[in-house]
């Protein structure tokens, strides 16, 4: 279990406990956090779980694979250097306290 904070485009922040092994996307949709859609269900096939990871902690996370990078190009909102797909980031003790900002739109 790790505390994850999701900050929506309007600046409203929600902190929830997410089980180890769950993705940041699953943590959001199963806890009613708006701003992440996850339309494909977590198979890295839709780019509707786009998020911006706290830049200072980006290096702590495993780097995105080719599939994620290809899909990120299709994200509806601006893609930044700290853009990730939240279905590809799994919660673990190292993600405790992670803050992710959500984009203006998921398309």
């Amino acid at each position: 279990m790790a505390k994850i904070t999701y900050v929506d485009w309007g600046g409203r922040s929600t902190t929830v406990d997410v089980a180890n092994g769950w993705s940041l996307m699953q943590g959001a949709v199963s806890n009613g956090v708006e701003g992440i859609v996850g339309e494909c269900g977590g198979s890295c096939a839709c780019a509707t779980c786009h998020c911006y990871v706290d830049p200072e902690r980006l290096a702590e996370l495993p780097a995105p694979d080719d599939n994620e990078l290809t899909m990120l190009d299709l994200a509806a909102a601006e893609v930044r250097p700290n853009s990730r797909l939240s279905c590809r980031i799994n919660v673990s003790p190292t993600t405790e306290g992670l803050v992710v900002h959500l984009p203006e739109t998921q398309g």
């Binding site: 699953q26 949709v29 199963s30 996850g38 339309e39 269900g41 977590g42 890295c44």
Partner: peptide, 18 residues
């Protein structure tokens, strides 16, 4: 019902969902 498992979930979530 966000996050439902009607199309499964994870890497094997249904290819044909859309």
């Amino acid at each position: 019902p966000r996050g439902h498992l009607g199309f499964g979930g994870g890497v094997h979530a249904c290819l044909g969902a859309s």
